[in-house]
Nucleic acid binder design. Structure first.
Lengths: 214, 214, 214, 214
DNA sequence: TATGAATGAGCCTTCATTCAT
DNA sequence: TATGAATGAAGGCTCATTCAT
């Protein structure tokens, strides 16, 4: 997959090849354990060329994060049809999410595992993407509330927590599905929809769970 | 906190000091970026002593993982009163979990972020702990089903997915609460209980969400 | 001797420079006491380059052993004219041997002293070279026996011991000549020829020394 | 063999135990690769005690060399009956030598291999012992010359070389016999006597080998 | 556009050696 | 007599990064 190793290709193409290699190595070895040597070799390029195009390990990693974050967000957005009922939108988004992460496990490892565990420059990139997704989910929850009732019953702070929990659960399921093969993207999405939507439905009807008095 | 840095302490004490330092450095820097020099210095000890007692960076990391995994599991188990209704057990367990992770953020980083992203020797350790917790949650869900009805309605495979999602959501909320200070352990637990329990309740009543036909 | 220290030389050249330095340091300090730092410095190169080309201390040492063993065997073989009478061949071989060891004392130290005292990976290399030489000498002794009589009088096992003793004596004399300067290669060779050849001659005439009955 | 590990033994005994252990470890691992830790453990003693008695690794090694050198010289001297004919003395000395080196391979490795390859402090010790033995052999050769003729025919310098060669051959045979088990001390001694004595006898009769004119 | 040659810096690990009891 | 606790110093090895072509 990808262009042949041959020489003299336009910069844009070479850069993609390098980032493909980098995502693979970063995803499998981790940021620190990945070596520029291995990345260059896997890209079929000499090391100085990697530096010429991507400047440094840090920038290369950042570039990978950005590219894969954008790809993931695009996949999710692309799977959703705006205007549909909120539950169908969520369902479609989750399916797109699980499908994408299953298709690109190294990219998912980079985004979910590596970028978040290696300090500020990278964690911030992920935070941006995650906030985008959380915001999207928050919107859907709010819209669902609007669909069910005239006025949303849920205070904003609660919605934020719920969205966070939903996204977290989705992430965990993506890891789980990737590891324990046997669970398809569709099944994972269904499990989560069942879990979340029914619960949310109850919440929006005002049937919230109350902690014991003591 | 902890004994004075002074010299000549019994081995067992020194080992704990070293592991305290190691958890902090591993948690903040990550496994690869952490240097034995920094750990030794933070422990108030020379590097050779660290090697004398803990043998290698890898073994030191493993020792940290094991100690903190045991501490976390103990905290959760200790917070739960067996025999109580399943929802109260879950509530108590979640509160203990969020309290513990908030009190020891570096330990939580080690367990959740670092150990899982640095290859087999360590990921396996975490898998063991995680399975223990997932099994516990699975039991609670099954018990809840039993409490609500005479026969559990949920097939085993589904329960596994639900437990996985619940644990994943809890982990994500722990990170979220740790980062965005302002959310207490109690609030996080309440959010998750609301989210999960209501949804689960619906499921057990057979009101599951169904994907659109196409 | 050797190319200028200057920078940017082709790999093959640099490798030889490094091995020159390594032979010197290994020969003078011993395998364990030699430091890669010193070798690199003596070679006029940074340490990483040594590792880039020679991989490890062990492989570097092995490479030195192989190069110098080949050089020594070549020198001895090159000094001998096949087809000549056995005694002249032995004489020529010994002269070449003593000349070579005197010219390259560090190489001789590596082969004779260091490689044999530092465990299996290296001792095996030397064993190969030594067997080659012992075999050569064994052939000469057998040929001498054939020249002197129609049938060789010496049983094979004895010849092996004799060759071993002759080679051992030569090795000791090489060390002795290297240390107590004042003995030339020619003198050493003459001493040994006198010592050995006369004895061998007698043996082949059947005049062997017999141990006392008790 | 040797006293039980038990505590509180007189210094002299402990010292011997330590040196026993040291000879074994030095002989098998080499001077540099041997660790004081391993020696102390093998001696059944704590490391500080080794330092209390033997002061340093260097002094410990030197003490081992001296003890084993004395033991070897004593063994050879003890095997020889002064006043007997020179050939019987040499024969007896060689048998004692090969027997001793076969019985104590680690000690022989220390003397022959390790001490001579690790720099001045140690090589000097060996030189002393070796000179003693070479001198003894030199005497025997001279005496043999006296027995055979009224006046020695051999110039001193030649005798020195011959003795050196003889000792060197003996050393090589000792290594050979130790490695290739199957050769007894008696056989090794006989091989060497045959080889050497006949040659020496010829030499003393004036029948020396002459190098070709060119 | 592309690369062979080269290095400063740092890290894991080990070892001989000593202190305090 | 004997040892548990502790360290300064150094060595092997790797890595991100650059120079010169």
């Amino acid at each position: 997959m990808g262009a042949v190793k041959g020489k003299r290709m336009p910069r844009a193409v070479r850069e993609q090849q390098m980032m493909d290699a980098a995502v693979r190595v970063f995803g499998q070895r981790g940021y620190r354990a990945a070596s520029m040597d291995e990345i260059a070799e896997l890209a079929g390029v000499s090391k100085p060329l990697v530096y010429l195009y991507l400047n440094s390990k840090e920038e290369l990693f950042t570039a990978c994060i950005r590219r894969e974050a954008a790809a993931l967000v695009d996949a999710v957005r692309g799977g959703v049809t705006p205007g549909e009922p909120a539950d169908r939108q969520l369902w479609a988004g989750l399916r797109a999410f699980f499908t994408h992460t299953a298709e690109r496990p190294d990219a998912w490892a980079v985004l979910h595992s590596q970028a978040r565990t290696h300090g500020e420059p990278f964690a911030a990139e992920i935070a941006v993407m995650r906030e985008e997704i959380v915001a999207f989910v928050t919107l859907l929850i709010a819209e669902a509330a609007r669909e069910a009732h005239d006025n949303p019953l849920l205070p904003e702070q609660d919605v934020a927590g719920l969205a966070e929990a939903l996204v977290g659960a989705a992430e965990a399921l993506a890891v789980w599905a990737n590891a324990a093969s046997g669970v398809t993207a569709k099944e994972a999405a269904a499990t989560l929809m069942n879990f979340a939507w029914s619960g949310l439905g109850n919440l929006m009807d005002g049937k919230s769970w109350s902690p014991p008095s003591r």
